[in-house]
Measured scan of single mutants.
Amino acid sequence: MAASAHGSVWGPLRLGIPGLCCRRPPLGLYARMRRLPGPEVSGRSVAAASGPGAWGTDHYCLELLRKRDYEGYLCSLLLPAESRSSVFALRAFNVELAQVKDSVSEKTIGLMRMQFWKKTVEDIYCDNPPHQPVAIELWKAVKRHNLTKRWLMKIVDEREKNLDDKAYRNIKELENYAENTQSSLLYLTLEILGIKDLHADHAASHIGKAQGIVTCLRATPYHGSRRKVFLPMDICMLHGVSQEDFLRRNQDKNVRDVIYDIASQAHLHLKHARSFHKTVPVKAFPAFLQTVSLEDFLKKIQRVDFDIFHPSLQQKNTLLPLYLYIQSWRKTY
């Protein structure tokens, strides 16, 4: 089996927390979720979201995140109150960019949308954001926290390059993509939290790379249903696996070995980020709550012996909000 052949990389499970039942964490995340308004986002309300009498641009960002990046939404709820709305805006910006690729039928249209967001970032730093909910909220975040323009532009530029429907040539190319998107998002989150620390940035770099790799793995069944495969070609070739094997949902050992190798790289990034947690300011830990969902996925895929098409991998963990709150309460990542 794939797991038994390579099992030495995987460390002990961390979500089991001995003695936790003896201490009762304060009510927090679930209460916040219940208090949030929840009407559906419609095209009509989106168009009017920044106008008078609408929910408001902040509510639009929150709803977009809740629907399109639920794990990011849950993590954002546990940030300090003064930072929450800015991170909602930042993550909503990322969602807007991420959904361009799947929402257009022609690359030219995707490039036009990316050009809109490039100009939007430029206009935000000229205090002239367009009348668009996410743009307005992002402008507020930039003004409030003096966010670095370079990180925002890196996210747009990398998403634009990724409009080509090509597999990553190697794991390094996937890591570079993750660094310029997910890690950049974390650098900006640290700025919102008021953290300027080399060790925190180092952790953000590795956690962002782990996030990018896990996202690529999780999306494999969806991409396969659209006749697309984006997994690193070098690892596929190493194990003699073709793109057609993934399109046919082949579950042979060599296919699972490909998934094992890729998942192991995410695991190593996560492990390395945690190896120097004592040197990272505690104030930075809330920015890294996504490690909970990353670890949850890596454990699940290990349990199914790296069968990327196993139905259990597509099921939401209903206990994730609780695990996130516990992680926040324990002040760790």
Rank of each mutant, 00 (worst) to 15 (best):
L185K: 00
Y323W: 14
E191K: 05
S293G: 14
L268F: 08
Y60Q: 06
T220E: 04
F297E: 02
G224W: 08
S50W: 06
H131G: 12
L147T: 00
D127F: 02
S103K: 05
I136V: 15
T279M: 15
T120R: 03
L152V: 12
I326A: 14
I326D: 02
E295V: 10
N176E: 13
E191N: 07
L298T: 03
V258M: 05
E295T: 08
R144K: 12
W117D: 04
A284D: 01
L247F: 07
Y260M: 07
L152I: 15
R84A: 07
R330Q: 08
D69V: 02
Q290L: 10
F285E: 02
E158H: 13
V46N: 06
L190Y: 00
R227W: 14
F246V: 12
Y177T: 09
Y325D: 02
K67A: 08
W151Y: 06
I262G: 02
E82V: 12
Q115I: 05
F246Y: 08
C236P: 00
R144L: 10
Y187E: 00
R227Q: 11
E160L: 13
T148M: 04
R144E: 09
R249V: 10
Y73C: 04
H59T: 10
N94T: 04
Y222M: 10
I207Q: 01
K196A: 11
L186D: 02
E106P: 12
K119H: 09
A203W: 01
T318W: 14
D197R: 03
S205Y: 05
M153A: 11
I136Q: 13
S275L: 09
V229P: 07
L324K: 03
V95E: 05
Y222A: 15
D157I: 09
R91F: 05
W55R: 14
H267T: 08
A89I: 02
F230L: 15
H310W: 01
N254V: 12
W329S: 06
A167L: 14
C126V: 15
V304T: 08
K271E: 13
V255T: 13
V46M: 09
S86H: 11
I124T: 03
K149T: 03
T332M: 12
R68T: 12
V87A: 15
E71H: 09
A135Y: 01
Y323E: 11
A81I: 12
K196G: 07
N146C: 11
G53Q: 09
E122M: 15
I171E: 02
K149C: 05
E173T: 07
I308V: 15
Y333C: 03
A178E: 02
L294M: 15
P311K: 10
Y333G: 01
P221T: 14
L97C: 09
E295H: 11
A167T: 12
F88K: 05
V292C: 11
T181D: 00
L270E: 01
Y323S: 14
L324R: 03
A204L: 01
K119A: 09
V156N: 00
E63R: 12
R113P: 05
H239K: 07
A204C: 05
D257A: 10
H272Y: 10
F288G: 01
V87H: 13
L97V: 12
E106S: 12
E173R: 03
L294N: 04
Q302T: 06
A200N: 00
D252N: 10
R274V: 01
S183Q: 00
S184R: 10
V214K: 03
S293L: 11
A98N: 05
T279I: 13
L188P: 02
Q315V: 00
R226T: 14
T318S: 11
R68Q: 07
F93A: 00
D164C: 10
P52V: 13
R249N: 13
K119R: 11
K119N: 10
L270N: 00
I195W: 02
N94R: 02
A81F: 12
P311C: 06
G194C: 05
S312E: 13
L298G: 02
M153K: 14
G53S: 08
A210W: 00
C75T: 12
E244L: 04
P133N: 07
H277S: 12
L193G: 02
F297I: 05
R226K: 14
D261P: 03
V241S: 04
L78T: 09
S184K: 07
F230A: 09
K196D: 05
I195H: 03
D127Y: 05
R274Q: 10
D245M: 12
A219E: 04
T120C: 14
A135E: 00
M112C: 11
S312H: 09
H267E: 07
S76Q: 03
Q327L: 08
A178V: 02
E71Q: 07
M153S: 13
G51Y: 14
V280Y: 00
D296Q: 08
K299W: 15
W55M: 15
P221K: 13
I207D: 01
Q265M: 10
E179H: 10
Q182E: 13
W139A: 09
K67S: 08
D305C: 04
N94H: 05
L65Q: 05
L217A: 02
K316E: 08
I235G: 02
T120N: 02
C126T: 15
L270Q: 00
V282G: 13
L322M: 12
K271R: 13
G53Y: 13
N180E: 07
T318N: 12
G53N: 11
V46A: 10
D102W: 07
V95R: 03
P130G: 13
L320W: 06
K161E: 12
A266M: 01
Q265E: 08
N250M: 12
I124G: 00
H202L: 04
S85H: 12
A98F: 03
L270G: 00
Y60S: 05
I262V: 14
G224F: 11
E179F: 03
C75I: 15
V142A: 08
N254P: 15
N180W: 15
Q265N: 11
D127W: 01
V100S: 07
L65N: 09
R84E: 01
G194I: 00
V229T: 13
L77D: 02
W329L: 11
L270H: 00
M112I: 11
E244C: 03
D234Y: 00
S183F: 00
L298N: 02
P281E: 04
Y177S: 09
P133M: 07
E82L: 13
A263M: 03
L313K: 01
L74P: 00
K299I: 10
P130Y: 04
T291Y: 01
L64D: 04
N180G: 14
I192G: 07
P286R: 07
Y323Q: 15
E137F: 02
L319I: 13
L152M: 15
C61D: 04
G194L: 01
L77Q: 04
T332G: 11
I192M: 12
A204K: 01
S86A: 14
Q251I: 13
G51L: 11
K140C: 03
L64S: 14
I192F: 02
R248W: 06
E179L: 03
H59F: 11
R169D: 10
V121F: 03
Y168W: 12
Q243A: 05
L186A: 05
Q302Y: 06
H269R: 05
F285A: 15
R218A: 07
A89Y: 01
H267V: 09
Q99L: 09
Q290V: 09
G110E: 10
A287C: 07
I136R: 14
D245L: 08
N146S: 12
E191V: 00
I192D: 02
T148G: 08
D165R: 07
S50M: 09
V95T: 13
W117T: 01
S83I: 13
I259W: 01
H199M: 11
N317Q: 15
C61Q: 04
S275D: 10
G51N: 13
L190E: 01
I259E: 02
A81P: 14
V214I: 10
Q115L: 09
H199K: 10
D245E: 10
A266L: 01
L313P: 00
D261E: 10
L64C: 07
D305P: 01
F297A: 05
Q327I: 05
L147H: 02
Y325F: 12
S293P: 12
L322A: 13
N254C: 15
S293I: 10
P52W: 13
S183D: 03
A266K: 00
I109C: 07
S183W: 00
Q115G: 14
I155Q: 06
D197W: 02
P286L: 09
L78Q: 04
M112E: 11
G194H: 05
T279S: 13
Y323D: 14
P80W: 02
E137Q: 12
H239C: 03
L64T: 14
R330G: 06
L294C: 09
L79A: 15
Q211V: 11
G208R: 03
I109Y: 06
F230S: 10
A204V: 01
W329Q: 07
T318E: 12
M114Q: 06
T148Y: 03
L289I: 12
L147N: 01
D123I: 02
L313G: 02
P311V: 07
Y73D: 02
K172G: 12
